[in-house]
Computed example of a mutant assay.
Amino acid sequence: MKIHFAPADVPLDRRLQTASVLQWVFCFLGLAPCCIVLFLYLLFTRFWIICVLYAIWWYIDWDTPSQGGRKVPLLCRMRLWEYMRDYFPIKLVKTADLDPRQNYVLGFHPHGILVAGAFTNFCTEATGFSKLFPGLKSNLLMLPLWFRAPFFRDYIMCAGLVPSDKESAKYLLQRKGGGNAVVIAVGGAPEALDARPGDCTVHLANKKGFIKLALENGAHLVPIYSFGENEVFDQVENPRGTWLRSIQEHLQSFMGVSLPLFHARGVFQYSFGLMPYRKPINTVVGRPIKVEKNEKPTAEDLNTLHQLYMDELTRLFEEHKGNYGIPEDSHLVYL
């Protein structure tokens, strides 16, 4: 394979953009294991007291992730995230106002490989979430597994990440006064296994937990489609029924995380690596679906609202796909 190296005269801004995305990819893929190894290493050195003190703090602070976390606005506004935004670039598109007196469940589609759009738009201020939707505070849900990693849990809480369990979401949605937006990548880890350029597969047909969450808490539903989310990485072919897909699905079933074999470009060359391609991501936020509080919804209630949500997501996709290079004959595929 011929390697296509990056030119030596790359402008400084582009180098900084690459560096910002490199640290983000490392944090997503490698920071949690590094934190665990560091904790165990320090435990058997003269710096063991650091681990003991942290363990005490961890015990005291155990419930914080499920009680709104500890988002640090100053860190969310760092210039670092603006460089990451410009690397792709990423844009947040508003189609309707969201009343800050209400609480919302924002359904994010598709998951993609590393949910770059969800993180940049809802965990940082690089794309201007608070300006587009004044009075709203966003929290992105993440697998509870990652909040078991020492040091790493504190880092991700700073960005507004909270565990993706029912109690954590309820805590935010039951806050009085409104203004809370819980962002859920509805397709989750299984959807990442279908993330590849040109694919419009959405795992939604049997996903009704977030619908029930919205009904029980009277939170309005908002569909979001992130055009370009699947374009920034290639993935090894893994059709359903193949041995690779079977292994991936088996691992996902008991680990909670999927293991897509993805690749794209490198830091100093464009031929291979784990750095995403520089392709635009346009995250379009749809109009809200009003939800009346129903603490004991029936199956019919869930099915009705679920179908309404699917119809609204389809409308959003069809209405905007032409603006972002999606062929006219491409439609959402629901699994």
Rank of each mutant, 00 (worst) to 15 (best):
Y87L: 02
F88K: 04
P89R: 03
P89T: 06
P89Y: 03
P89N: 03
I90P: 00
I90N: 06
L92W: 00
L92E: 00
L92R: 00
K94P: 03
T95H: 04
T95W: 02
T95Y: 10
A96L: 03
A96S: 15
A96E: 12
D97P: 08
L98Q: 06
L98G: 12
D99V: 10
D99C: 05
P100W: 08
R101F: 00
Q102I: 06
Q102K: 15
Q102C: 12
N103R: 02
N103Q: 04
V105K: 10
L106S: 01
G107F: 00
F108A: 12
F108S: 11
F108V: 10
P110C: 05
P110H: 08
H111M: 13
G112M: 10
G112K: 11
I113V: 15
L114H: 02
L114M: 12
V115L: 13
A116P: 03
A116D: 06
G117P: 10
G117S: 08
G117N: 07
G117C: 09
A118M: 06
F119D: 01
T120S: 13
T120K: 01
T120I: 13
N121M: 05
F122H: 07
C123Y: 00
C123M: 06
C123P: 01
T124C: 12
E125N: 05
E125L: 00
E125Q: 10
A126T: 07
A126E: 10
T127I: 03
G128A: 08
G128S: 13
S130F: 01
S130M: 03
K131I: 01
L132T: 05
L132P: 04
G135C: 02
L136A: 13
L136V: 07
L136F: 07
L136P: 12
K137L: 06
S138A: 15
S138E: 07
S138Q: 05
S138M: 01
L140T: 12
L140Y: 06
L140C: 15
L141A: 00
L141K: 02
L141C: 12
M142E: 15
M142S: 15
M142P: 08
L143A: 10
L143P: 01
P144Y: 01
P144R: 09
P144I: 07
L145G: 05
W146R: 03
F147D: 04
R148A: 11
A149M: 09
P150M: 14
F151T: 14
R153A: 11
R153T: 11
Y155W: 14
I156L: 06
I156N: 04
M157Q: 07
C158L: 08
C158W: 07
G160T: 08
G160H: 13
L161F: 13
L161C: 15
L161Y: 12
V162S: 05
V162W: 09
S164D: 10
D165Q: 09
D165K: 10
D165H: 14
D165V: 13
E167S: 13
S168W: 05
S168Q: 05
S168D: 05
S168N: 13
A169I: 01
K170I: 09
K170F: 13
Y171A: 09
Y171K: 06
Y171H: 11
L172R: 11
L172H: 01
L172P: 03
K176A: 15
